[in-house]
Design a protein around this nucleic acid. Structure first.
Lengths: 158, 158
DNA sequence: CCCATTTAATTCAGTATTCAACATTTACGG
DNA sequence: CCGTAAATGTTGAATACTGAATTAAATGGG
């Protein structure tokens, strides 16, 4: 059993680190969302556009897109429907596996991506990257990488 | 104007740091949510409980609670309604300012908090804190603190 | 070759979040 | 004081997210 006095409560240092991380992730997402708003995109929209832009032929299977954006299939399906209605992507059926579908960037989606990306990068710099002293960023990533690996193993489905 | 070649794209190092941060924050929230599920709480529920537990008299003004949990007033209002229905919290009117309301922890809310907290702390340790070499955690927090400060200044409303 | 499993993706119902509109009370400038 | 502006919270409708159930197609053991 777990009694109260057994519990390895967080030290002050740990508590501060943890809460700072929480605050930064939430505030940062809000800020990036706000910076994307003038372009009519959400963070989720943008991330889909990035993934498709970087993909072979500007297309990815729904499954792969769900995996790489860390979303459930259900959520991705809704998300793509919305983006399809907005004209940014389209669905195309897959020859080799008739269950499958590709999400494909449209011309308009690609144009949007190229137009918005510089502003988004500026936003990421302004509110995150450029606030680290050059050395620290490397250390920051090094610290976080094992955490990311651990979490990826831990999770079953989303 | 902003042309493509003007844009200070992220370097490889920067890109990796940024994406790792993104992945960790999302995966971590999912994992914590999953670990709370057996207790019938969401991350949001838990955070409200923490804030009220630490507050004078186990009560906070709706506004203050919204500010410290970084949520909009509307969202908090709905959230508290749900928690009220679940018996964790109740609303009490405020003497000194008749517009105002307190959110107050109920007995059941306080019991729940004490029962769940050890498990939640264990979860935070397992998936985050304990994955940092002792020295690194301090450096991690130090790097993130200016980011948090910047973001707090930047944001107007939520 | 067939049936049982697994995989791909969507749908539906329930829940949560956002955004704007609203009611009420307080603050403040003249 | 008065009247306008600002602050506190809630509400409702529209939108988004979740998790389970569903459809359809591929896989694989006997």
């Amino acid at each position: 059993m777990t009694t109260d006095s057994d519990t390895p409560w967080l030290t002050d240092q740990e508590q501060r680190a943890w809460r700072t991380h929480l605050d930064v992730s939430r505030l940062l997402m809000h800020q990036l969302e706000r910076d994307l708003q003038p372009f009519g995109l959400t963070n989720n929209d943008y991330e889909i556009l990035v993934n498709l832009s970087e993909a072979e032929d500007h297309r990815l299977r729904m499954s792969d897109l769900a995996t790489s954006t860390l979303q459930s299939k259900s959520r991705l399906s809704h998300q793509i429907t919305r983006m399809e209605n907005a004209g940014l992507v389209r669905r195309e059926s897959c020859e080799s596996d008739r269950r499958g579908l590709y999400a494909v960037l449209t011309e308009e989606g690609w144009d949007t991506m190229r137009r918005v990306a510089p502003h988004h990068v500026a936003s990421v710099r302004k509110h995150f990257i450029d606030l680290f002293p050059a050395e620290d960023l490397q250390a920051f990533r090094a610290s976080l990488t094992p955490v990311a690996e651990h979490l990826r193993k831990e999770r079953g489905g989303l």
